[in-house]
Write a protein that binds this DNA or RNA. Structure first.
Length: 915
DNA sequence: GCAAGGTC
């Protein structure tokens, strides 16, 4: 293939990481005309330079192949904005930023410059995703600074496979500026939002409260980030859901039957009822006519499929579930194994193997293992029939294959327990996903007792297949006796049992990863970082079962923003940014346009949040004692009025002195002693986002004042939006009239301890309300399972089935039946036959047309507003579902107690109620 | 001292 083409040119090739530089060089140099692969050191000890000869489209090249280590550059504010007290955090929305190579990457930069000077071509082998494209342009910037005449090309490849790499080298394209632009947008927005909110909330709250979770509360950082905060939001939201759960009693009928073959447990196909009386009526009917008739026997073959090939998130989730290993630790160990060559690249979204991957060879490598080696041998034996080409999960990052073993090991001497575990998981997972599914025979038996349906099922595993090697998964099964259609028997036990709805569990690490994945928070390579950040920042804790609870601090911050009405703790902001980035990368939106729009929105949000900082204070006060530090000399950043005209370096901020008086002083104190005194009659003052139109140099933010009525002349207003820039005559006159001196009574109401606490607890209460009203799911998890439910209708009841009405809840026919309880013996009722529908009404009510479904009997996981409706209309009567039946207008039309028939009370208060 | 994204 090495044709003519004249004198060889020199090409500098750059990969995103050393391993790719090595792998691609290895592939491209694997022919006699390459002159062999030479390696030499670069200036960075990690990033070697590989050299060989190669022909591209018949042009001979001398290739120098080196690498970077991820991003070469960082985006950062200009120096004068770097110090926290150097500016008002709101300035960070327009402060100049620059992209530069940080100190620890300067050796890589030097290598690139030196190599670029010697080269005619630059070929970019960065990962083929948006971040990779952005890194490509960072490399271009460094290289073209050294050599303006470079001919710049991009190699597009999705796997480190010979054919793919050669194809990429022969079909070079130009780098895609739009992809890189999208990342520039994200970087800048992340930095500006993160830095502004972090500085704002840290400086606002850190010194105002006694943060009792650390001994070093002066240095604690209350960070905000567009990924870490929604992650915290998931944790807090689940916590609130648990807190607001009200346990509710329900009732279910259980039936067992012992025979010579064993015991069968039949579950009620209605699942459970929340109405004790209804359950009792149905139960008593069963007891009076307990003969069970087998109505259906179903035998089915069921398959349990092996998992898809392993992506990063799945690895993290499974290691957490199987080994209780944190996602951070899993990634650390996986990185070690990758570096040592035992597993493939561990940061991948891909969960299907390319057709070109030689899966058999990977299995062959594992044949020697003392434990799973024999399974690997069976897999390769065509007669065993165990092999199955893996089914993919539909994700492909176009850069890396799923995680799989790349080298056999029976365990290395330097490995920790965690290394053994992660390697074993990767190997077993791989072997599982090229295996046949497990096969089971499932038997379901349905019976009828007095018109009520019950079902029992059993499973026998016929072939374990992949379960033989994937020891982390089980497929529970039990054997039930044989039954035949029409068979009749008397149950061994028939019981009416109670249960209580339970709240959902706290979020596990695997749950949290799923939430983040679904909402697009973070990437496969960073999700574990965001989770760890919650722990590092004291926002959440993780218990021994890997479940997350928000700390007081985490809950307070989310509560504060939520009370402001912002969804900054929700994933929507990130989702919107992600969609904007996509638009930039597709060219449908321009970089500058998206940046400006997003920053403008976020700035408005920031300014508004600062005005509403009282909400954050109140939320914090629910959980923490106020400290007296904030009343001292610590400046309250966030109250910047203008830049100091005296020192020209720092900002003038609104402050309240210990004596209760307000002043506007320079943050440069004590070097700069510039100060503007305010009238002594000020009772409240807050900097607004309004800018004075006359005073210069601007901006000069106006201050909203409140004066004490008795201390100012009657012709002055108590409320005044004023400016300290010199234009405000009212303010000047009031200083003259009232002076700036201290007053005897400097204590004032408002943020006092008592007030804060009471409003705090109100906050706390309104929290659960708010959570429900904004439509959070209110899933209740019954403590008993409700298996066997489906939408199909049952056969007509054995008795009274001649009459039916359509169900007012679901439309299915409700058959007429007869009650057998002491109080209602002989009374007819309609009961919905649809499984899962609990509609029930007396015949006389139905005939009068005045029935509605019973309130909470028909409640389900998709009914989030139940709490809002509860307790208001039925406050005086207790549980809503005990209020007999109501007309369409909500009026009770039957005031009788179900249990004893007494009209003076309802069933929940019945003295005869009980079991 | 701040973000999130690469990677060592």
């Amino acid at each position: 293939m090495a044709g003519g083409g004249g004198r060889p040119l020199r090409a500098l090739n750059v990969a995103e990481k050393p391993s790719v530089a090595k792998a691609v060089s290895g592939i491209l140099s694997r022919n006699p005309s390459s002159g062999g692969l030479r390696v030499r050191e670069g200036r960075s000890r990690y990033n070697k330079i590989f050299e060989f000869n190669y022909a591209i489209q018949n042009q001979q090249f001398h290739m120098a192949f080196t690498s970077v280590t991820g991003h070469l550059m960082e985006v950062e504010f200009e120096d004068r904005y770097r110090k926290w007290h150097s500016c008002d955090p709101v300035d960070l929305y327009h402060a100049p930023v620059r992209k530069h190579v940080p100190q620890d990457k300067s050796d890589i930069e030097k290598t690139l410059e030196e190599e670029a000077r010697k080269s005619q071509w630059l070929i970019l082998w960065l990962d083929c995703d948006r971040e990779g494209e952005n890194i490509a342009f960072e490399v271009v910037e460094v290289c073209t600074r050294a050599n303006r005449n470079l001919n710049i090309w991009r190699a597009r490849f999705s796997a480190l496979i010979d054919r793919e790499i050669h194809y990429a080298a022969q079909h070079l394209i130009r780098p895609n500026q739009l992809f890189a632009d999208a990342v520039d947008v994200r970087q800048e927005i992340d930095l500006r939002i993160g830095a502004s909110f972090t500085r704002f909330q840290t400086m606002l709250l850190r010194d105002a409260f006694v943060l009792d979770f650390t001994t070093d509360d002066k240095n604690v950082i209350l960070s905000y980030g567009p990924c870490q905060f929604p992650t915290l939001g998931f944790v807090v939201e689940r916590f609130w859901e648990i807190q607001s759960h009200e346990p509710e009693e329900f009732w279910t009928i259980n039936c067992t039957h012992n025979s010579e073959e064993g015991t069968a447990t039949f579950n009620w196909m209605r699942g459970h009822l929340f109405d004790y009386t209804c359950a009792t009526i149905l139960y008593e009917m069963c007891v009076q006519e307990p003969t069970a008739t087998v109505t259906n026997v179903r035998q089915q073959e069921k398959l349990k499929y092996p998992p898809h090939p392993l992506s990063t998130i799945e690895l993290e989730k499974r290691a957490s579930r199987y080994f209780r290993m944190s996602s951070e630790q899993t990634m650390k160990v996986a990185e070690d194994l990758y570096q040592a060559g035992f597993i493939s690249y561990p940061r991948t979204e891909t969960d299907s193997f390319s057709e070109r991957t030689d899966l058999h060879t990977i299995v062959q490598d594992q044949q020697a293992h003392s434990i799973w080696g024999s399974y690997a041998q069976r897999l390769l034996d065509p007669e065993a029939g165990l092999w199955r080409n893996p089914s993919g999960g539909g994700h492909d990052d176009k850069a890396h294959p799923p995680i799989h073993p790349t080298k056999f090991s029976s365990g290395e001497s330097g490995w920790s327990q965690d290394h053994h575990k992660v390697y074993e998981l990767v190997v077993r997972h791989f072997l599982a996903c090229v295996s046949q599914p497990a096969i089971g025979a499932e038997t379901t038996v349905e019976i009828d007792i007095a018109g009520e349906q019950f079902a029992a099922s059993g499973r026998v595993i016929l072939a374990k297949n992949y379960l033989d090697v994937y020891r982390f998964e089980t497929w529970g099964g039990s054997v039930i006796p044989t039954y035949t259609y029409g068979q009749q028997f008397t149950p061994t036990t028939l019981t009416l049992d109670s249960g209580v709805t339970r709240p959902p569990p706290l979020l596990s690490e695997a749950d949290l990863l799923s939430c983040m994945d679904k909402a697009g928070i973070g990437t496969d390579a960073t999700m574990h970082d965001h989770i760890k950040k919650l722990l590092d920042r004291f926002y959440a804790t993780k218990d021994s079962s890997m479940r997350f609870t928000p700390t007081k601090l985490g809950e307070a911050l989310v509560m504060g923003y939520d009370d402001m009405g912002y969804e900054l703790w929700k994933p929507y902001l990130r989702a919107a940014m992600e969609s904007d980035m996509k638009a930039v990368s597709m060219g449908t939106k321009r970089k500058a346009e998206v940046l400006e729009a997003c920053l403008q929105q976020m700035k408005a949000c920031f300014v508004d949040a600062r005005l509403n900082k009282g909400k954050l204070f109140e939320a914090m006060a629910v959980f923490f004692e106020r400290s007296n530090r904030s009343n001292g000399n610590e400046p309250a950043i966030g109250d910047v009025v203008r830049r100091c005209g005296l020192c020209q370096e720092s900002d003038m901020v609104l402050r309240r002195k210990p004596d209760g008086n307000f002043m506007v002083g320079c943050l440069g104190y004590p070097q700069c002693r510039n100060v503007v005194w305010l009238p002594g009659s000020v009772s409240e003052a807050a900097v607004t986002s309004n800018i004075c139109s006359t005073c210069s140099p601007g901006p000069v933010y106006m201050i909203q004042f409140k004066f004490r009525r008795l201390e100012i002349p009657p012709n002055y207003n108590v409320d005044h939006l004023g400016c300290i820039g010199g234009c405000d005559n009212t303010l000047r006159q009031l200083v003259e009239i009232c002076g700036t001196g201290s007053r005897n009574n400097s204590s004032m109401p408002g943020r006092g301890q008592g007030h804060t606490q009471s409003s705090g607890s109100a906050q706390s209460n309104s929290r659960s309300q708010g959570a429900w009203q904004t439509g959070h799911s209110s899933t209740s998890y019954p403590s008993q399972s409700s298996r066997g439910r489906s939408a199909q209708t049952q056969d007509a009841a054995a008795e009274d089935g001649e009459s039916s009405i359509p169900c007012a809840s679901c439309g299915t026919p409700c058959n007429l039946r007869t009650a057998n309880t002491a109080a209602n013996r002989g009374r007819k009722f309609y009961s919905c036959q649809a499984q899962g529908c609990n509609f029930f009404t007396w015949e006389d009510n139905a005939n009068s047309g005045g029935t509605v479904p019973r309130g909470s009997n028909s409640r389900s996981a998709s009914n989030p507003s139940r709490r809002g409706g509860r307790g208001r209309s039925n406050q005086s009567r207790g549980r809503a579902n005990d209020v007999a039946f109501m007309s369409a207008t909500g009026e009770p039309i039957s005031g009788r107690c179900f249990v004893c028939g007494d009209p003076s009370h309802f069933a929940n208060a019945c003295p005869n109620r009980g079991r």
